[in-house]
Simulated scan of single mutants.
Amino acid sequence: MIRKHSHVKIGRYHQHLQEQLDLNLSPLEYMMKCYPEIKEKEEMRKIIGRYGLTGKQQVSPIRNLSDGQKCRVYLTWLAWQNPHMLFLDKPTNHLDIETINALADATNGFKGVKMLVSHDFRLIQQVAQEIWVCEKQTITKWPGNILAYKEHLKSKLVDEKPQLTERTHNV
C-alpha cells in the first residue's frame, strides 16, 4: 500500500492532457481563470511568454493553436501548480527541438522528484539520472546510460534479424 502525504502536490503530464484544456478560452483567459491570485494580465502574459507563447497566441482561442502550442499551455499550467513530484509521460509529442531542449533545462532545474517515460533518446540523455527498462512485465534498472541502452537494442535487433528471415522462408 502506498500512502501520499496530504501536503504533497503531484504534477502529471501525459500526451493527451492538453485535451482537457478549455478550447473556447485563450491561454491568457485559461491561466487567469486557473490562477486568480495573479490579478494583472501583463504579469500572466509574461508567465505564459516564458513557455514560448507570445503575442496573438496568448489571446487566440486554444482550439486555434497547434498541438505543440496546446502542450505549452498545459506545461505552463503544470509548472504553476508548483508540484513536489513530477510525472512526465511522453512529454515531447508535438514539441519542436527548441521546446524539447527548454523542457530538458526546466526538468533539470526542477528540485522535486521526477519520473520521465519517453521514447525520445535525446531528452532522456539530457535529463536521466537512472534508466529503468520496462519489458516482459518486469522493471529493471539499467546499469549504464541511455546511449549504452540504445546500443544494446541495436545488438538485439541484429541478433534477431536472422530469426526473422528464417521464419519468413518457412511460411
Rank of each mutant, 00 (worst) to 15 (best):
M115C: 10
V117L: 13
P27F: 13
S118P: 04
S26F: 03
Y74S: 08
A102T: 08
Q163L: 04
A128L: 00
H5F: 06
H84N: 14
Y74L: 10
Q129S: 05
H16T: 04
K9G: 03
P162G: 05
L25Q: 14
I139H: 04
Q81K: 11
V59P: 03
L86H: 05
E160G: 11
K4Y: 07
H119N: 06
H152E: 09
G55P: 07
V158Q: 15
G109A: 06
E135P: 00
C34I: 04
L17R: 15
R72P: 04
N64Y: 06
Q125A: 15
K9W: 10
Y74F: 14
E19A: 10
E29V: 02
D105N: 10
N24F: 09
G52D: 07
Q81G: 02
K9E: 10
Q129M: 08
I97P: 01
M44Q: 11
E160K: 15
P162N: 11
K161A: 05
P91A: 01
H7F: 02
I139P: 03
A79C: 06
E130P: 01
K161C: 04
W80F: 15
E40W: 06
I2Q: 12
K41T: 05
K161R: 12
L153T: 04
K41H: 10
Y35H: 12
N64T: 07
S60A: 14
M31N: 05
E98D: 11
L88T: 05
D22T: 00
P61F: 12
Y74W: 05
K114L: 05
Y30Q: 13
P61W: 07
C34V: 01
F121L: 13
L65K: 14
E19W: 13
P91R: 09
M1T: 04
T92K: 10
L116G: 03
N93T: 12
H5P: 00
Q125T: 02
Y13E: 01
K156W: 13
N101T: 06
L157M: 13
A148D: 14
P36Q: 07
G112A: 11
Q137K: 09
T92Q: 08
M115Q: 02
H84T: 01
H152F: 13
Q163V: 04
V113T: 15
Y13H: 08
K161N: 12
Q20F: 09
H84L: 02
I62Q: 12
L157P: 01
C134G: 01
I62S: 11
T99R: 05
E130I: 00
L123Q: 08
D105M: 11
Q18R: 12
